[in-house]
């Protein structure tokens, strides 16, 4: 039985936005960055990632365009829009509030 590497439900959008807030990136880059920064706790499969990116793009939170990458491949590069940045701030604040509350609850129990 392997360790659970699924992204916590409902947080994938936020993780993508956060990752893109550093710099525009293609899909594989986002997946690798999430995996690296979470030190392998979260693994993002391409199906979920591309579905989420499609949703964010339709929602106006990210823009996308085909570009040449540094290793001369064609890739679809995503970048944060202003609405996306706003959304990121809102969901970060919300997450911190909830995570803090959960941490306190768990500490109190322990």
């Amino acid at each position: 039985m392997g360790e659970n590497t699924d992204v916590i439900q409902g947080t994938l959008d936020m993780l993508i936005l956060k990752t893109l807030s550093l710099e525009p990136m293609h899909g594989f880059g986002i997946a690798r960055r999430v995996e690296q920064i979470s030190r392998g706790v979260f693994k993002v499969n391409p199906g979920s990632l591309l579905t989420a990116l499609q949703r964010l793009e339709r929602g106006g939170l990210v823009d996308a365009e085909w570009r040449q990458t540094e290793n001369a491949r064609r890739a679809r590069v995503y970048s944060l829009t202003r609405a996306g940045r706003k959304q990121l701030d809102a969901s970060t604040a919300d997450w911190n509030r909830r995570a803090g509350a959960i941490a306190r609850l768990l500490k109190a129990d322990a």
């Binding site: 293609h26 899909g27 391409p46 591309l50 491949r73 064609r74 890739a75 679809r76």
Partner: peptide, 17 residues
């Protein structure tokens, strides 16, 4: 084709890794 290309890109990068 766009989706297929993105998946292919994933595949290529993962292979490289």
């Amino acid at each position: 084709r766009d989706v297929a290309d993105e998946v292919q890109h994933f595949l290529d990068e993962t292979t490289d890794a």
